[in-house]
Design a protein around this nucleic acid. Sequence first.
DNA 1: ACATGATAATTGTCGGACAATCCGACAATC
DNA 2: GATTGTCGGATTGTCCGACAATTATCATGT
Lengths: 239, 239
Amino acid sequence: MFEPLDTAPAYLRLSAAIRARILGRELGEGDSLPTETELARQFAVNRSTVREALRNLQSAGLVERRGGGKKLYVSRPAVGAVGEGLREALTLHEARFADVWEALLALEPAVAAAAARRRDAAQLAALERLAEDFGSRELPATEAVALVGQFFRALGVASGNPVFVLANEPLVQLVEPSLAIIIDRLPQARRRIAGAQRAMVAAIRARDRAGAADWMRRHVEDFRRGFEQAGFPLETVVG
Amino acid sequence: MFEPLDTAPAYLRLSAAIRARILGRELGEGDSLPTETELARQFAVNRSTVREALRNLQSAGLVERRGGGKKLYVSRPAVGAVGEGLREALTLHEARFADVWEALLALEPAVAAAAARRRDAAQLAALERLAEDFGSRELPATEAVALVGQFFRALGVASGNPVFVLANEPLVQLVEPSLAIIIDRLPQARRRIAGAQRAMVAAIRARDRAGAADWMRRHVEDFRRGFEQAGFPLETVVG
DNA sequence: ACATGATAATTGTCGGACAATCCGACAATC
DNA sequence: GATTGTCGGATTGTCCGACAATTATCATGT
């Protein structure tokens, strides 16, 4: 009979208004927003209210301040930040290693296949350099893991699919700590990872989609085995 | 010799501090936070600063107010909200239909397979009811599409994998508008969707993982064909 | 054209204020 | 007994005004 009234606080309605303008492309990436005082004047609210609304947009990644400056710019949400939010969400939802692994097994072969199909020369070169770096040097675990993470991110970029790039990120972030432990405890882990990376890069260079996906599958399965052999149950909650 | 000082604004350090406590499980879901005045006192900052920090946590979904109340409670980020943020991010990254479809093709068969393996009786019943609802009634496009969305969400839940649940959400949200148009323009769309849902439910009931994945693959491929037949190029930017 | 320094604008933070609303307890009513 | 009214206190949403620190702007001299 009656519809609920819109009693949303002003700061929410304000951020919703600006958000709509950004998503509706009226404000494009790189455009700068008016100053807080000016926004307060235009929306006829207090500057404190404006600031609360801006914090909202800021943590959604829709606006940002560049390099310590004062001006606010419209921005597309950074992949790293979005991934971190997702990682937090998954942590609080108590995702287990088995869950993340299952997602990796579904996603990464497809990413590798897409990369094999669509990578350009520069992206291939980046992958080759990362694989070479990992394979040739005996870095400390933390740095080695960072390289593996970079390899996966580079794969995402090479896939040319922003959905893959975004989906990749939280999984990589969640997996990195476990991987560090595995590399520390299992002497053969480095060799196996290096081998898989080399094989994937070769398949991607040859534009061999099935090969890239296959090697990725083995790589991900190896990862699960490593996790178990390092003494962790698959039910371990990540994060 | 000297470490860089932490010059981040107070409201950021404050939200980081609370965030860390939540992620570190010192504050569990459902716990209530002190009042703003009390937080201001404890952190020795002004209440306005506290409020900016809280807006930050609020939009990350780490705290919420329940049902128009005043108390703040620690919460795990709601799937819908996280998905919406991701949808926005993908929209601003100009993901094309082809990209979303590629991700669906990688993800959904795995979700269906996991659901076939792990679903319990109640989850199966929910899927059956949704499929039955969709197949038996000739609802207007918007409601029909909502039912399809519910079917995918229920699949995610039945998969027992929070990663799948979360990854599902933005894809479903992005796809729903396109699907509404397809259903409107292609007379055979309803029948094909109903058929696929029935087949998937049957496979999931029989715990036939390969069958479920297979039917899902056909279903997703059908969806792409429908999109093209409805007159859209795959490069259409979603959102 | 380019560095430089003065000047104006802007942000981050603060203190205080007040109405609206929610909460809990208690009383009144059906 | 359950719903409804009432009342004081606590809390939030919003406003105002202020100020130091930092950044942007611009005229100026080289």
